[in-house]
Design a protein around this nucleic acid. Sequence first.
RNA 1: GGAUGGGUGGCCGAGUGGUUUAAGGCACCGGUCUUGAAAACCGGCGUGGGUGCAAGCCCACCGUGAGUUCGAAUCUCACCCCAUCCGCCA
Length: 426
Amino acid sequence: MHDIRFIREYPAAFDAGLKKRNLAPLSAEILAIDTRRRAAITESEGIQARRKTLSQQIGMAKRKGEPADALMAEVAALEEGLKKGEALAAELDAELTRRLEVLPNLPAGDVPAGSDETANVEVRRHGNQRNFSFAPKDHVALGEATGEMDFAAAVKISGSRFVFLKSHLAKLERALAQFMLDLHTIEGGYTEVSPPLLVKDAAVYGVGQLPKFAEDMFHTDNGFWLVPTAEVPLTNLVNDTVLDEKDLPLRFTAYTPCFRSEAGAAGKDTRGIIRVHQFPKVEMVSITTPEQSAAEHERMTGRAEEVLKRLGLAFRTIVLCGGDMGPASRKTYDIEVWLPGQTAYREISSCSNCGDFQARRMAARFRPKEGKGTRFVHTLNGSGLAVGRTLIAVLENYQNEDGSVTIPEALKPYMGGLTTIPAPAK
RNA sequence: GGAUGGGUGGCCGAGUGGUUUAAGGCACCGGUCUUGAAAACCGGCGUGGGUGCAAGCCCACCGUGAGUUCGAAUCUCACCCCAUCCGCCA
């Protein structure tokens, strides 16, 4: 949600930010509504002040037993104008909110301009793409050969874009999640959280997913949303609260399934488990002061990269251009892991600094050490990592010619002594 | 699913039609005292909005929205949310 005072003060900067998002300028239109709104407020408040004074006089007169008929008549005469003024002010206020709540956050100054992923900018690369002495298979071929990745069963029970993992693969998924959580809690300083996965409208509105992106999520018939990411419950942990500056930053991590309807993704990534309706993810969320958030963003991205480094997976980190960022973000790094089965880097994490955009929507503030009043916190979220896609990366990068898969060193403690996922029986 | 109770400032909590300009406490900030701290004492301290160069002035806000009234935290209605008990259940 945008601050109308910022738009009043810096209309050109506001429009420039929208332009980076490939949106037309809106400041003139919005400020016109704001001007009419303020005029309506000023007028109706004047009438209210008058009524208040008169009512107090009526009270005093009655207590003294004096007649108050003239005063009461004067108040009655105000009635109509007051009703109209209040209604107009409320209507204009609602219109302003309707306009503002659907707008995306303004990109940070160092975010590149551009309309789609072709304008994203690579900021660093790590690790080497593995050279294979044989033709590497993709994760589907590897998983189906052993029967441990079962799409046919999932189709029967849930339809397309679901999967059963069995035996070693189910265990590998669990090992990955546990490895990541340990890394974030022990080394990263994050507090592990096990959050609700069904949430109310207000929570989803708070992170900016509602009212505009309802179709991307699943909804239950008694009014809950299935979380599309643990960002929703974790960030809302601070909704409607006033924190103490000394308690910031707050860092939360959670391992949860994520549910996405993938509306509008028909025909995209239909093979395998790259894009499914339900996937496991370890999420990181930080709550900071405005001064801390840029540094925290780098730190968080570094923690996500650290997972890939420990797993020995090659990746690159890119900064998204204005047109490719999620709506709540002011700056986003995507981390892409090398997938030999696709001979491509594919997104495995997305780390966003949302500034005060979500904080405004969910009323998350802090009391500064210096100065009076309250300020909005900054919120950040990042995957650390998408566990399903990490599983793909491990399978494809650590596969052997016979179809077996070597377990990466870092995961061995979590695999109960297993060093290799066996090759399929011939 | 059935029954009951309840939503008041950062937190706790009083308040059943008119100086409520929301008591009191806690927390926080400043001061006195102290070698320093604690305690004690004194003072300050809600949020949002409008207006103004500013000092300031004004309006709203007691879950949300309507209503009654000259006047509503307080009365009426609807809705939302929370809690407890019973039933069912991992």
